[in-house]
Design a protein around this nucleic acid. Structure first.
Length: 461
RNA sequence: UCCUCCUUAGCUCAGUUGGUUAGAGCGGCUGACUGUUAAUCAGUAGGUCCCUGGUUCGAGUCCAGGAGGGGGAGCCA
């Protein structure tokens, strides 16, 4: 089972027993009589202190143990009084796995800018900040599965490659095995996708929702959690070309059940991170955002303010505030409008019942003939963290809407069939995983909450 | 894609109205110190001033174009 982790050792009270630990040296200091190493193995944000008597070791060995070097240390676990750490290891044996030339190793004892660390994304997991972010990322993923599993949801693997281009959520990345220079062409001179791997045009998915609905209409409650791809030329701290999305889909849920679930889930996840990642959150709170912990506690305890799109428009108009983009019923809300609402209610806001003309074809139409049962959850600074709706379950209404919007009906035959056979009211939403990571970590650039970010003009590593 | 700011040592940055040899802190290296906590102290090395072209007696500094990055906006999760 390997050696104990630093996390286990720091919590251990087995004083004066021999232990072996593996890790990477963060700092070394000392003199000819005594040497201190801070060794971190990624199991926890803290490093463990290793104390070595230089006379017991080869000079050349100690010389090559520098910041970044990988080592194995065997020695006695000793309780330390009046210091910054509960225990330390008095080294008897020191083994070097791999050295790290101090003249060229890019990570120093000092802090680095997040911009610089993005350029060395292969090494940045070794920093305190990215260790904390990646551990939180794991915990958040785990919490999502726990939340849904405990509530009777089934994890559905929706396809990554999709043959449907009707999802309408954004520009897509083409998937093809055709020769890019000399593709086969049909009689009209167009690229002949019948000769392509799947015999048709295929793309990377922009959403697992449509497939999620198929499963919800059989299993009741399902969720997807997988990578999602958008070929939009978006250059902002809130967009990625490859990101992870959670999409629950529930049969027999109306829009209000949907909002209840979204709010309960978000609060559960925030509370989970506060409970399970206290050390990492405390570190991020100290180094990046002094209000992080307080904001998370407040969000976990809050009640999200709910209002309709129409009420939001009235509120914005009544505010008398001068907006760069004028407020008018029927137009999509701009960032400045969302910010005003979130500031006004001093916390998360859920908006619902948007004009049908600015929303997707699959959303359930209200009886007023003007709006659909859409809902967006807006978070401070981040903006839209969740977008969802009650789905249109009436075959004729859905079919008419598809035709109205000039969506190729034949590509959605399978989607429409579920409204023909045993259709039921159902709802769902999409949660941007990295956007939630931004909120939970206090990081301000989405490229710093995913291990290897993919953005326009950047697929390094 | 649009607007805006930035690019000088390994990192973070200063560099005056254009003027001699481009600086600091940290990191690295050398040395001192028997318990340090991003140790401290002394010394030392380290530069394609993002690239290309232009103005000028003279450009890190001014102008034009390009590249890369940050922030804001749009698209959205």
């Amino acid at each position: 089972m390997g050696s104990p982790t630093v996390k286990e050792l720091l919590a251990s009270t087995a004083y004066d027993t021999n232990v072996t630990l593996n890790g990477w040296v963060r700092t070394k200091r000392g003199n000819k009589k005594i040497v201190f190493l801070a060794v971190n193995d990624g199991s926890v944000i803290h490093s463990i202190q290793v104390v070595a008597d230089p006379t017991k070791f080869e000079e050349e060995l100690l010389r090559s143990v520098t910041t970044g070097a990988a080592v194995a240390v065997t020695g006695k676990l000793v309780r330390t009084e009046g210091r910054d750490q509960p225990v330390e290891v008095h080294a008897e044996k020191l083994e070097l796995y791999g050295s790290a030339d101090p003249a060229s190793y890019p990570l120093q004892k000092k802090g680095h800018s997040l911009e610089f660390l993005r350029e060395i994304a292969h090494l940045r997991p070794r920093t305190n900040t990215f260790g904390a972010v990646l551990r939180i990322r794991h915990a958040l993923s785990y919490a999502i599965h726990t939340y849904f599993n405990d509530r009777g949801f089934f994890y559905l693997h929706s396809p990554i490659i999709t043959g449907s281009d009707a999802e309408g959520a954004g520009e897509m990345f083409r998937v093809t095995t055709l020769d890019a220079v000399n593709p086969p062409r049909n009689k009209k001179g167009h690229v002949d996708f019948k000769k392509d791997f799947f015999g048709k045009e295929t793309n990377l998915t922009v959403s697992g929702q449509l497939e999620g609905e198929m499963a919800a209409l059989a299993l009741g409650k399902v969720y997807t959690f997988g990578p999602t791809f958008r070929a939009e030329n978006s250059n902002t701290p809130r967009h990625l070309a490859e990101f992870w999305m959670i999409e629950p889909e529930m049969a027999f849920y109306d829009i209000h059940d949907n909002m209840d679930l979204a709010e309960d889930m978000l609060k559960y996840l925030v509370a989970y991170i506060l409970d399970h990642c206290a050390d990492d959150v405390a570190f991020l709170n100290k180094m990046y955002d002094q209000e992080l912990t307080a904001r998370l506690q407040s969000a976990a305890a809050s009640t999200f303010h709910r209002m309709s799109y129409t009420e939001a428009i009235d509120l914005l108009t009544a505010s008398g505030k001068e907006f760069e983009y004028p407020v008018s019923w029927g137009a999509d809300l701009q960032k400045e409008h969302e910010n005003h609402l979130v500031d006004h209610f001093k916390g998360p806001v859920i908006l619902s019942d948007y004009p049908r003309d600015i929303k997707a074809f699959y959303m359930k139409q209200n009886d007023d003939g003007k709006t659909v049962r859409a809902m967006d959850v807006l978070f401070p600074w981040i903006g839209e963290i969740i977008g969802g709706s009650q789905r249109e379950e009436r075959h004729e209404v859905l079919q008419n809407r598809i035709r109205e919007m000039n969506i190729p009906e034949e590509s959605l035959w399978w989607y429409l069939e579920t409204r023909k056979y045993g259709t039921v009211p159902h709802s769902g939403f999409g949660l941007g995983f990295e956007r939630l990571m931004l909120f939970v970590t206090g990081m301000t650039n989405i490229r710093d909450v995913i291990p290897f970010p993919r953005t326009p003009q950047n697929a390094e590593f």
